[in-house]
């Protein structure tokens, strides 16, 4: 309990969060690259080509992890929204607003790669497939959260409004997803979705998991960068930011 309380207060304190994450950032970047490079290499070269789809299926190694991330980030935001609303932790709000554009970007990547993948498969850039449609709706929900936050001048209010909207979204997302799947089976000849990978070969699975892990670290990396930037921006006139600037300046002058 004590340890949790201690961490809770420390993570809530920007003057502690900022230098700690500053030390973590390069390591996270290294881990990201260490996962990305073998993942990409295996995915693009050593994994066998699909017997039906040939080499074009290799875009899956970007598409699937990006789609996973777009959902994972939303659920992470929803958890942060509960923390922000119940315990009024400002850092949780900063985490949400820093995550929203990243989640939206992953959703966009999933949509673009899905569309690129769809062209050779379906002969069309866009097909109203259940997963692509859900992903598109998710993108709009991300954009809504982002737009709401930016529309509200008072950032304290904006943070709470955004947390409420995030939670409303997490309740609705499963309903939306299942209704879209249902709609899709109703309106289209029920072909098996091209993105389904029911029994995946182990040589395909390993690069996929590597890429998924790499994307997790990519998210963490960008998230921390964005959180630090948002913190600096919001606390521009606070003591701890002034101290950082002052220390930097001193170090810089000393270096000369």
């Amino acid at each position: 309990m004590n340890i949790i309380a201690k961490w809770y207060y420390r993570l809530g304190a920007p003057n502690w969060f900022y230098p700690l994450t500053g030390k973590m950032l390069p390591w996270i970047a290294v881990i990201f690259l260490a996962l990305l490079i073998p993942g990409l290499y295996m995915g693009l070269f050593t994994a066998p080509a699909d017997y039906q789809q040939g080499d074009s299926f290799r875009i899956m190694y970007v598409h699937v992890p990006a789609a996973w991330m777009s959902m994972f980030i939303y659920f992470a935001m929803a958890v942060a929204a509960v923390v922000a609303l119940v315990w009024r932790v400002r850092m949780a709000e900063i985490m949400i607003i820093s995550s929203a554009p990243i989640g939206a970007s992953f959703a966009l990547i999933a949509l673009i790669t899905g569309s690129l993948w769809g062209k050779p498969m379906w002969g069309a850039w866009w097909v109203w497939d259940a997963r692509l449609t859900s992903e598109l709706i998710l993108l709009f929900i991300y954009l809504g959260i982002f737009a709401l936050y930016n529309a509200i001048e008072n950032k304290q209010t904006a943070g709470r409004a955004m947390s409420i909207l995030t939670l409303v979204g997490v309740v609705n997302l499963p309903i939306i997803h299942y209704s879209v799947v249902w709609w899709n089976t109703l309106h289209q000849a029920a072909t098996v979705s091209k993105f389904d990978t029911p029994s995946i070969h182990i040589d395909m699975l390993i690069p996929l998991l590597l890429m998924a892990a790499a994307f997790q670290f990519l998210y963490l990396w960008i998230l921390l960068l964005k959180m630090r930037a948002n913190l600096l921006e919001q606390d521009l006139h606070c003591g701890w930011v002034k101290k950082i600037i002052w220390d930097r300046r001193k170090a810089h002058n000393g270096g000369n």
């Binding site: 709706i137 709401l148 609705n172 209704s179 879209v180």
Partner: peptide
């Protein structure tokens, strides 16, 4: 200035009702 914000926030959540 919220005129276009409301549909942006709300329309995604209207989809299940519309579908059924």
């Amino acid at each position: 200035k919220s005129s276009l914000l409301l549909p942006l926030l709300v329309l995604p959540f209207y989809i299940p009702v519309l579908i059924f």
